[in-house]
Design a protein around this nucleic acid. Structure first.
Lengths: 218, 218
DNA sequence: TAGATTGTTAATCGATTAACAATC
DNA sequence: TAGATTGTTAATCGATTAACAATC
Protein backbone atom coordinates (compact mmCIF):
# COMPACT_ATOMS: atom_id res chain seq x y z
CA UNK A 1 0.00 0.00 0.00
CA UNK A 2 2.48 2.57 -1.14
CA UNK A 3 -0.14 4.88 -2.58
CA UNK A 4 -3.09 6.69 -1.16
CA UNK A 5 -6.48 6.08 -2.64
CA UNK A 6 -8.06 8.90 -4.54
CA UNK A 7 -11.70 9.31 -5.23
CA UNK A 8 -11.76 7.59 -8.59
CA UNK A 9 -9.89 4.61 -7.18
CA UNK A 10 -12.44 4.26 -4.39
CA UNK A 11 -15.29 4.38 -6.88
CA UNK A 12 -13.60 1.76 -9.03
CA UNK A 13 -13.09 -0.48 -6.01
CA UNK A 14 -16.81 -0.25 -5.35
CA UNK A 15 -17.52 -1.25 -8.92
CA UNK A 16 -15.14 -4.22 -8.78
CA UNK A 17 -16.93 -5.36 -5.65
CA UNK A 18 -20.28 -5.28 -7.40
CA UNK A 19 -18.99 -7.34 -10.30
CA UNK A 20 -17.19 -9.77 -8.03
CA UNK A 21 -20.30 -10.39 -5.94
CA UNK A 22 -22.16 -11.17 -9.15
CA UNK A 23 -19.42 -13.52 -10.35
CA UNK A 24 -19.34 -15.21 -6.98
CA UNK A 25 -23.08 -15.79 -7.04
CA UNK A 26 -22.65 -17.39 -10.45
CA UNK A 27 -20.21 -19.87 -8.97
CA UNK A 28 -16.94 -18.39 -10.22
CA UNK A 29 -13.92 -18.97 -8.04
CA UNK A 30 -11.17 -16.92 -9.59
CA UNK A 31 -10.85 -13.98 -11.89
CA UNK A 32 -8.09 -12.32 -13.92
CA UNK A 33 -7.31 -8.65 -14.13
CA UNK A 34 -8.41 -8.52 -17.74
CA UNK A 35 -11.83 -10.03 -16.96
CA UNK A 36 -12.44 -7.44 -14.30
CA UNK A 37 -11.11 -4.70 -16.51
CA UNK A 38 -13.49 -5.63 -19.31
CA UNK A 39 -16.37 -5.74 -16.87
CA UNK A 40 -16.01 -2.19 -15.69
CA UNK A 41 -14.35 -0.77 -18.79
CA UNK A 42 -10.75 -0.20 -17.71
CA UNK A 43 -7.44 -1.79 -18.68
CA UNK A 44 -6.02 -4.75 -16.77
CA UNK A 45 -3.18 -2.51 -15.60
CA UNK A 46 -5.59 -0.30 -13.73
CA UNK A 47 -7.13 -3.28 -12.01
CA UNK A 48 -3.77 -4.64 -10.89
CA UNK A 49 -2.64 -1.25 -9.75
CA UNK A 50 -5.85 -0.59 -7.81
CA UNK A 51 -5.56 -3.96 -6.11
CA UNK A 52 -1.94 -3.53 -5.24
CA UNK A 53 -2.83 -0.15 -3.65
CA UNK A 54 -4.76 -1.98 -0.99
CA UNK A 55 -2.50 -5.04 -0.93
CA UNK A 56 -4.96 -7.42 -2.50
CA UNK A 57 -2.98 -10.59 -3.22
CA UNK A 58 -3.14 -12.36 -6.58
CA UNK A 59 -1.42 -15.46 -7.84
CA UNK A 60 1.14 -15.03 -10.57
CA UNK A 61 -0.60 -17.52 -12.76
CA UNK A 62 -3.92 -18.18 -11.09
CA UNK A 63 -5.33 -14.67 -11.07
CA UNK A 64 -7.26 -13.49 -8.05
CA UNK A 65 -9.31 -15.62 -5.69
CA UNK A 66 -12.78 -14.10 -5.67
CA UNK A 67 -13.64 -15.06 -2.08
CA UNK A 68 -10.47 -13.49 -0.78
CA UNK A 69 -10.75 -10.20 -2.59
CA UNK A 70 -14.50 -9.85 -2.02
CA UNK A 71 -13.76 -10.20 1.67
CA UNK A 72 -10.83 -7.81 1.58
CA UNK A 73 -12.63 -5.25 -0.54
CA UNK A 74 -15.65 -5.39 1.74
CA UNK A 75 -13.36 -4.79 4.67
CA UNK A 76 -11.72 -1.78 3.05
CA UNK A 77 -14.97 -0.29 1.77
CA UNK A 78 -16.88 -1.22 4.91
CA UNK A 79 -20.04 -2.64 3.39
CA UNK A 80 -21.19 -4.62 6.43
CA UNK A 81 -23.96 -2.69 8.14
CA UNK A 82 -27.25 -1.69 6.57
CA UNK A 83 -27.14 1.55 4.65
CA UNK A 84 -29.42 3.80 6.64
CA UNK A 85 -30.38 7.17 5.23
CA UNK A 86 -32.84 9.99 5.88
CA UNK A 87 -34.82 11.84 3.26
CA UNK A 88 -35.68 15.53 3.35
CA UNK A 89 -38.50 16.66 1.09
CA UNK A 90 -41.42 14.37 0.34
CA UNK A 91 -42.69 15.85 -2.90
CA UNK A 92 -42.75 14.03 -6.20
CA UNK A 93 -39.18 12.94 -6.30
CA UNK A 94 -38.97 12.26 -2.59
CA UNK A 95 -42.04 10.07 -2.73
CA UNK A 96 -40.76 8.17 -5.73
CA UNK A 97 -37.58 7.46 -3.79
CA UNK A 98 -39.45 6.27 -0.70
CA UNK A 99 -41.36 3.83 -2.87
CA UNK A 100 -38.35 2.79 -4.91
CA UNK A 101 -38.05 -0.98 -4.60
CA UNK A 102 -34.49 -1.22 -5.83
CA UNK A 103 -33.19 0.22 -2.57
CA UNK A 104 -34.27 -2.79 -0.52
CA UNK A 105 -32.34 -5.12 -2.83
CA UNK A 106 -29.20 -3.08 -2.33
CA UNK A 107 -29.50 -2.91 1.43
CA UNK A 108 -30.42 0.76 1.40
CA UNK A 109 -33.03 1.73 3.95
CA UNK A 110 -34.73 5.11 4.11
CA UNK A 111 -35.38 5.38 7.84
CA UNK A 112 -37.72 8.36 7.64
CA UNK A 113 -38.85 11.19 5.44
CA UNK A 114 -39.15 14.79 6.62
CA UNK A 115 -41.20 17.62 5.22
CA UNK A 116 -42.34 21.11 6.13
CA UNK A 117 -45.92 20.48 5.00
CA UNK A 118 -48.00 18.95 7.80
CA UNK A 119 -50.44 17.45 5.28
CA UNK A 120 -47.69 15.08 4.35
CA UNK A 121 -46.92 13.88 7.88
CA UNK A 122 -47.72 10.21 8.29
CA UNK A 123 -46.20 8.02 10.95
CA UNK A 124 -48.05 4.93 9.72
CA UNK A 125 -46.66 4.70 6.18
CA UNK A 126 -43.88 2.20 5.37
CA UNK A 127 -41.44 5.08 5.48
CA UNK A 128 -42.83 7.41 8.17
CA UNK A 129 -42.96 11.11 7.31
CA UNK A 130 -42.27 13.57 10.11
CA UNK A 131 -42.02 17.28 10.67
CA UNK A 132 -38.74 18.54 9.28
CA UNK A 133 -38.07 20.24 12.60
CA UNK A 134 -37.60 16.79 14.09
CA UNK A 135 -35.00 15.80 11.52
CA UNK A 136 -31.93 16.88 13.49
CA UNK A 137 -32.90 14.89 16.57
CA UNK A 138 -33.74 11.86 14.50
CA UNK A 139 -30.37 11.93 12.75
CA UNK A 140 -28.48 12.30 16.02
CA UNK A 141 -30.53 9.67 17.84
CA UNK A 142 -30.01 7.08 15.12
CA UNK A 143 -26.49 8.03 14.16
CA UNK A 144 -27.39 8.47 10.49
CA UNK A 145 -24.56 9.73 8.30
CA UNK A 146 -26.14 9.94 4.86
CA UNK A 147 -29.04 12.11 3.73
CA UNK A 148 -31.06 12.58 0.58
CA UNK A 149 -32.09 16.12 -0.27
CA UNK A 150 -35.25 16.40 -2.38
CA UNK A 151 -36.58 19.76 -1.24
CA UNK A 152 -37.38 22.80 -3.42
CA UNK A 153 -34.26 24.68 -4.43
CA UNK A 154 -34.87 27.69 -2.19
CA UNK A 155 -34.87 25.39 0.84
CA UNK A 156 -31.87 23.30 -0.18
CA UNK A 157 -28.99 25.09 1.48
CA UNK A 158 -30.89 25.66 4.72
CA UNK A 159 -31.89 22.02 5.05
CA UNK A 160 -28.35 20.99 4.15
CA UNK A 161 -27.02 23.07 7.04
CA UNK A 162 -29.40 21.37 9.43
CA UNK A 163 -28.28 17.98 8.18
CA UNK A 164 -24.63 18.79 8.59
CA UNK A 165 -25.21 20.26 12.05
CA UNK A 166 -26.83 16.98 13.05
CA UNK A 167 -23.91 14.89 11.83
CA UNK A 168 -24.70 14.03 8.22
CA UNK A 169 -21.47 13.50 6.28
CA UNK A 170 -22.75 12.59 2.83
CA UNK A 171 -25.65 14.01 0.85
CA UNK A 172 -27.30 13.06 -2.40
CA UNK A 173 -28.83 16.29 -3.67
CA UNK A 174 -31.74 16.34 -6.10
CA UNK A 175 -32.48 20.04 -5.72
CA UNK A 176 -31.47 21.93 -8.87
CA UNK A 177 -28.80 23.91 -7.03
CA UNK A 178 -25.17 22.92 -7.17
CA UNK A 179 -24.18 22.40 -3.56
CA UNK A 180 -20.49 22.14 -2.82
CA UNK A 181 -18.70 19.50 -0.83
CA UNK A 182 -16.83 20.59 2.27
CA UNK A 183 -14.55 18.87 4.72
CA UNK A 184 -17.56 18.01 6.84
CA UNK A 185 -19.77 16.66 4.09
CA UNK A 186 -19.42 15.03 0.69
CA UNK A 187 -22.13 16.10 -1.71
CA UNK A 188 -23.21 14.35 -4.85
CA UNK A 189 -25.43 16.54 -6.99
CA UNK A 190 -27.99 14.90 -9.24
CA UNK A 191 -29.36 17.65 -11.42
CA UNK A 192 -31.64 15.92 -13.85
CA UNK A 193 -32.38 19.00 -15.92
CA UNK A 194 -28.68 19.69 -16.27
CA UNK A 195 -28.01 16.11 -17.32
CA UNK A 196 -30.60 16.37 -20.05
CA UNK A 197 -29.25 19.70 -21.24
CA UNK A 198 -25.79 18.20 -21.34
CA UNK A 199 -27.04 15.31 -23.45
CA UNK A 200 -28.35 17.80 -25.98
CA UNK A 201 -24.99 19.51 -26.07
CA UNK A 202 -23.13 16.25 -26.45
CA UNK A 203 -25.39 15.10 -29.26
CA UNK A 204 -25.28 18.38 -31.12
CA UNK A 205 -21.55 18.77 -30.80
CA UNK A 206 -21.00 15.12 -31.53
CA UNK A 207 -22.43 15.80 -34.96
CA UNK A 208 -19.98 18.63 -35.53
CA UNK A 209 -16.70 16.93 -36.12
CA UNK A 210 -15.20 20.31 -36.90
CA UNK A 211 -15.51 21.21 -33.24
CA UNK A 212 -15.28 18.07 -31.25
CA UNK A 213 -12.42 15.63 -30.97
CA UNK A 214 -13.45 12.72 -28.83
CA UNK A 215 -16.69 12.62 -26.99
CA UNK A 216 -16.64 9.16 -25.47
CA UNK A 217 -18.21 8.81 -22.07
CA UNK A 218 -16.23 7.55 -19.13
CA UNK B 1 -9.67 27.41 -32.36
CA UNK B 2 -6.52 25.37 -32.52
CA UNK B 3 -7.78 22.66 -30.21
CA UNK B 4 -10.67 20.24 -30.31
CA UNK B 5 -13.20 20.29 -27.53
CA UNK B 6 -13.29 17.30 -25.27
CA UNK B 7 -16.20 16.20 -23.18
CA UNK B 8 -15.22 18.01 -20.01
CA UNK B 9 -14.69 21.24 -21.92
CA UNK B 10 -18.16 20.98 -23.42
CA UNK B 11 -19.68 20.40 -20.00
CA UNK B 12 -17.80 23.37 -18.60
CA UNK B 13 -19.00 25.57 -21.46
CA UNK B 14 -22.56 24.60 -20.56
CA UNK B 15 -21.93 25.56 -16.96
CA UNK B 16 -20.45 28.93 -17.93
CA UNK B 17 -23.52 29.59 -19.99
CA UNK B 18 -25.80 28.91 -17.03
CA UNK B 19 -23.86 31.28 -14.81
CA UNK B 20 -23.65 33.93 -17.51
CA UNK B 21 -27.39 33.86 -18.11
CA UNK B 22 -27.90 34.37 -14.40
CA UNK B 23 -25.42 37.26 -14.29
CA UNK B 24 -27.05 38.80 -17.31
CA UNK B 25 -30.47 38.64 -15.72
CA UNK B 26 -29.01 40.40 -12.70
CA UNK B 27 -27.91 43.24 -14.95
CA UNK B 28 -24.20 42.49 -15.17
CA UNK B 29 -22.52 43.59 -18.37
CA UNK B 30 -19.03 42.17 -18.18
CA UNK B 31 -17.25 39.42 -16.34
CA UNK B 32 -13.62 38.42 -15.70
CA UNK B 33 -12.14 35.00 -16.01
CA UNK B 34 -11.62 34.77 -12.27
CA UNK B 35 -15.28 35.55 -11.53
CA UNK B 36 -16.42 32.80 -13.81
CA UNK B 37 -13.80 30.44 -12.48
CA UNK B 38 -14.95 31.00 -8.91
CA UNK B 39 -18.54 30.46 -9.94
CA UNK B 40 -18.00 27.00 -11.33
CA UNK B 41 -14.99 26.05 -9.26
CA UNK B 42 -12.13 26.17 -11.74
CA UNK B 43 -9.09 28.42 -12.14
CA UNK B 44 -9.16 31.53 -14.32
CA UNK B 45 -6.67 29.86 -16.64
CA UNK B 46 -9.15 27.14 -17.47
CA UNK B 47 -11.80 29.69 -18.28
CA UNK B 48 -9.54 31.65 -20.61
CA UNK B 49 -8.33 28.49 -22.26
CA UNK B 50 -11.85 27.16 -22.75
CA UNK B 51 -12.93 30.45 -24.25
CA UNK B 52 -9.98 30.70 -26.56
CA UNK B 53 -10.74 27.18 -27.80
CA UNK B 54 -13.93 28.48 -29.34
CA UNK B 55 -12.51 31.91 -30.19
CA UNK B 56 -14.54 33.83 -27.64
CA UNK B 57 -13.11 37.34 -27.65
CA UNK B 58 -12.23 39.15 -24.43
CA UNK B 59 -10.79 42.58 -23.83
CA UNK B 60 -7.31 42.77 -22.44
CA UNK B 61 -8.44 44.94 -19.60
CA UNK B 62 -12.22 44.88 -19.71
CA UNK B 63 -12.79 41.16 -19.32
CA UNK B 64 -15.53 39.51 -21.34
CA UNK B 65 -18.73 41.11 -22.55
CA UNK B 66 -21.53 38.96 -21.23
CA UNK B 67 -23.92 39.60 -24.09
CA UNK B 68 -21.32 38.64 -26.65
CA UNK B 69 -20.20 35.43 -25.06
CA UNK B 70 -23.71 34.32 -24.08
CA UNK B 71 -24.61 34.66 -27.71
CA UNK B 72 -21.49 32.91 -28.95
CA UNK B 73 -21.74 30.12 -26.40
CA UNK B 74 -25.39 29.57 -27.25
CA UNK B 75 -24.40 29.34 -30.87
CA UNK B 76 -21.70 26.77 -30.21
CA UNK B 77 -23.79 24.72 -27.81
CA UNK B 78 -26.91 25.12 -29.89
CA UNK B 79 -29.40 26.04 -27.19
CA UNK B 80 -31.97 27.65 -29.47
CA UNK B 81 -34.74 25.14 -29.97
CA UNK B 82 -36.86 23.63 -27.23
CA UNK B 83 -35.38 20.55 -25.66
CA UNK B 84 -37.82 17.82 -26.66
CA UNK B 85 -37.49 14.39 -25.12
CA UNK B 86 -39.44 11.16 -24.85
CA UNK B 87 -39.82 9.08 -21.72
CA UNK B 88 -39.96 5.29 -21.61
CA UNK B 89 -41.37 3.75 -18.45
CA UNK B 90 -44.13 5.50 -16.51
CA UNK B 91 -43.70 3.94 -13.10
CA UNK B 92 -42.78 5.84 -9.96
CA UNK B 93 -39.72 7.58 -11.28
CA UNK B 94 -41.14 8.14 -14.73
CA UNK B 95 -44.25 9.73 -13.29
CA UNK B 96 -42.24 11.94 -10.97
CA UNK B 97 -40.30 13.14 -13.99
CA UNK B 98 -43.43 13.85 -16.03
CA UNK B 99 -44.74 15.98 -13.17
CA UNK B 100 -41.39 17.64 -12.48
CA UNK B 101 -41.93 21.37 -12.73
CA UNK B 102 -38.30 22.31 -13.01
CA UNK B 103 -38.18 21.00 -16.58
CA UNK B 104 -40.52 23.68 -17.90
CA UNK B 105 -38.30 26.40 -16.46
CA UNK B 106 -35.30 24.97 -18.24
CA UNK B 107 -37.04 24.60 -21.57
CA UNK B 108 -37.17 20.81 -21.33
CA UNK B 109 -40.36 19.30 -22.68
CA UNK B 110 -41.32 15.66 -22.29
CA UNK B 111 -43.36 15.15 -25.44
CA UNK B 112 -44.84 11.80 -24.44
CA UNK B 113 -44.44 8.88 -22.08
CA UNK B 114 -44.51 5.26 -23.19
CA UNK B 115 -45.28 2.16 -21.18
CA UNK B 116 -46.03 -1.53 -21.71
CA UNK B 117 -48.91 -1.51 -19.21
CA UNK B 118 -52.17 -0.49 -20.90
CA UNK B 119 -53.63 0.62 -17.56
CA UNK B 120 -51.23 3.49 -17.72
CA UNK B 121 -52.16 4.68 -21.19
CA UNK B 122 -53.72 8.12 -21.11
CA UNK B 123 -53.81 10.45 -24.06
CA UNK B 124 -55.56 13.19 -22.07
CA UNK B 125 -52.95 13.81 -19.38
CA UNK B 126 -50.60 16.79 -19.65
CA UNK B 127 -47.91 14.40 -20.86
CA UNK B 128 -49.80 11.76 -22.85
CA UNK B 129 -48.90 8.15 -22.16
CA UNK B 130 -48.95 5.76 -25.09
CA UNK B 131 -48.25 2.13 -25.84
CA UNK B 132 -44.51 1.56 -25.92
CA UNK B 133 -44.94 -0.13 -29.30
CA UNK B 134 -45.74 3.30 -30.73
CA UNK B 135 -42.57 4.83 -29.39
CA UNK B 136 -40.40 4.27 -32.44
CA UNK B 137 -42.86 5.92 -34.80
CA UNK B 138 -43.36 8.82 -32.45
CA UNK B 139 -39.62 9.45 -32.20
CA UNK B 140 -39.18 9.31 -35.95
CA UNK B 141 -42.21 11.44 -36.69
CA UNK B 142 -41.13 14.19 -34.31
CA UNK B 143 -37.42 13.92 -34.88
CA UNK B 144 -36.68 13.47 -31.19
CA UNK B 145 -33.03 12.85 -30.37
CA UNK B 146 -33.02 12.47 -26.59
CA UNK B 147 -34.78 9.85 -24.48
CA UNK B 148 -35.24 9.14 -20.80
CA UNK B 149 -35.17 5.51 -19.75
CA UNK B 150 -37.12 4.74 -16.58
CA UNK B 151 -38.15 1.16 -17.22
CA UNK B 152 -37.43 -1.90 -15.03
CA UNK B 153 -33.88 -3.14 -15.42
CA UNK B 154 -34.78 -6.29 -17.36
CA UNK B 155 -36.42 -4.14 -20.03
CA UNK B 156 -33.71 -1.49 -20.21
CA UNK B 157 -31.44 -2.80 -22.95
CA UNK B 158 -34.34 -3.83 -25.17
CA UNK B 159 -36.05 -0.45 -24.94
CA UNK B 160 -32.70 1.23 -25.49
CA UNK B 161 -32.28 -0.67 -28.75
CA UNK B 162 -35.69 0.48 -29.92
CA UNK B 163 -34.83 4.05 -29.09
CA UNK B 164 -31.55 3.91 -30.96
CA UNK B 165 -33.17 2.24 -33.95
CA UNK B 166 -35.64 5.12 -34.09
CA UNK B 167 -32.90 7.74 -34.06
CA UNK B 168 -32.33 8.59 -30.40
CA UNK B 169 -28.75 9.78 -29.91
CA UNK B 170 -28.67 10.56 -26.20
CA UNK B 171 -30.23 8.72 -23.27
CA UNK B 172 -30.59 9.47 -19.60
CA UNK B 173 -30.87 6.06 -17.96
CA UNK B 174 -32.49 5.58 -14.56
CA UNK B 175 -32.62 1.79 -14.76
CA UNK B 176 -30.12 0.23 -12.36
CA UNK B 177 -28.08 -1.29 -15.19
CA UNK B 178 -24.95 0.36 -16.48
CA UNK B 179 -25.62 0.91 -20.16
CA UNK B 180 -22.67 1.81 -22.31
CA UNK B 181 -22.33 4.67 -24.75
CA UNK B 182 -21.69 3.83 -28.36
CA UNK B 183 -20.94 5.83 -31.46
CA UNK B 184 -24.64 6.04 -32.16
CA UNK B 185 -25.78 7.07 -28.71
CA UNK B 186 -24.39 8.87 -25.66
CA UNK B 187 -25.68 7.41 -22.43
CA UNK B 188 -25.70 9.04 -19.05
CA UNK B 189 -26.43 6.56 -16.30
CA UNK B 190 -28.13 7.79 -13.15
CA UNK B 191 -27.97 4.91 -10.70
CA UNK B 192 -29.36 6.29 -7.48
CA UNK B 193 -28.62 3.21 -5.42
CA UNK B 194 -25.04 3.22 -6.62
CA UNK B 195 -24.68 6.92 -5.79
CA UNK B 196 -25.85 6.29 -2.25
CA UNK B 197 -23.54 3.32 -1.82
CA UNK B 198 -20.68 5.43 -3.07
CA UNK B 199 -21.48 8.11 -0.54
CA UNK B 200 -21.19 5.54 2.22
CA UNK B 201 -17.82 4.49 0.88
CA UNK B 202 -16.60 8.05 0.61
CA UNK B 203 -17.72 8.87 4.12
CA UNK B 204 -16.27 5.74 5.67
CA UNK B 205 -12.98 6.03 3.86
CA UNK B 206 -12.86 9.75 4.47
CA UNK B 207 -12.64 8.94 8.15
CA UNK B 208 -9.68 6.65 7.54
CA UNK B 209 -6.81 8.97 6.83
CA UNK B 210 -4.54 5.92 6.78
CA UNK B 211 -6.12 4.86 3.51
CA UNK B 212 -7.29 7.91 1.73
CA UNK B 213 -5.33 10.81 0.38
CA UNK B 214 -7.63 13.37 -1.04
CA UNK B 215 -11.32 12.82 -1.41
CA UNK B 216 -12.54 16.16 -2.65
CA UNK B 217 -15.36 16.07 -5.08
CA UNK B 218 -15.04 17.46 -8.53
C1' DT C 1 0.80 56.37 -18.63
C1' DA C 2 0.19 52.71 -15.22
C1' DG C 3 -2.38 48.96 -13.99
C1' DA C 4 -4.95 45.05 -15.00
C1' DT C 5 -6.45 41.32 -17.67
C1' DT C 6 -6.33 38.55 -21.68
C1' DG C 7 -4.31 34.94 -24.72
C1' DT C 8 -0.85 31.63 -25.12
C1' DT C 9 3.12 29.08 -24.14
C1' DA C 10 5.78 26.26 -21.09
C1' DA C 11 5.91 23.63 -16.67
C1' DT C 12 3.62 20.74 -13.65
C1' DC C 13 0.89 17.33 -12.14
C1' DG C 14 -1.62 13.11 -12.02
C1' DA C 15 -3.57 9.38 -14.05
C1' DT C 16 -3.37 5.95 -17.51
C1' DT C 17 -0.85 2.76 -20.28
C1' DA C 18 2.83 -0.17 -21.66
C1' DA C 19 6.37 -3.15 -20.67
C1' DC C 20 8.74 -6.60 -18.40
C1' DA C 21 10.97 -9.09 -14.67
C1' DA C 22 9.41 -12.17 -11.18
C1' DT C 23 7.15 -16.35 -10.38
C1' DC C 24 3.50 -19.66 -9.92
C1' DT D 1 9.52 -26.98 -17.84
C1' DA D 2 6.86 -23.66 -20.57
C1' DG D 3 3.31 -20.55 -20.53
C1' DA D 4 0.66 -17.16 -18.40
C1' DT D 5 -0.32 -13.67 -15.18
C1' DT D 6 0.89 -10.79 -11.47
C1' DG D 7 3.22 -6.69 -9.39
C1' DT D 8 5.82 -2.77 -10.34
C1' DT D 9 8.45 0.45 -12.75
C1' DA D 10 9.05 3.60 -16.52
C1' DA D 11 6.85 5.98 -20.50
C1' DT D 12 3.03 8.25 -22.21
C1' DC D 13 -0.67 11.00 -22.35
C1' DG D 14 -3.74 14.68 -21.25
C1' DA D 15 -5.37 18.05 -18.46
C1' DT D 16 -4.45 21.58 -15.21
C1' DT D 17 -1.66 25.30 -13.57
C1' DA D 18 1.61 28.95 -13.67
C1' DA D 19 3.79 32.52 -15.89
C1' DC D 20 4.30 36.26 -18.75
C1' DA D 21 4.31 38.99 -22.97
C1' DA D 22 0.90 41.53 -25.40
C1' DT D 23 -2.23 45.17 -24.99
C1' DC D 24 -6.36 47.68 -23.75
Amino acid sequence: MDKFLNKSTVLRLARYLRVLRKLKSLGFVKVFSNNLGDAIGVTPSVVRKDFSCIDLPGNKRGGYNIDTIVEELSKVLGKQQALQVVLAGCGRIGTALMEYKEFAKEGIHIMAGFDADRDRFNSQSPVPIHDIREMGDFIRKNGITIGILAVPDQAASHVLEQMIAAGIQGVLNFAPVELKSSNECVIQNVNIGLEIENLFYMVRLGARSDLVGELQTV
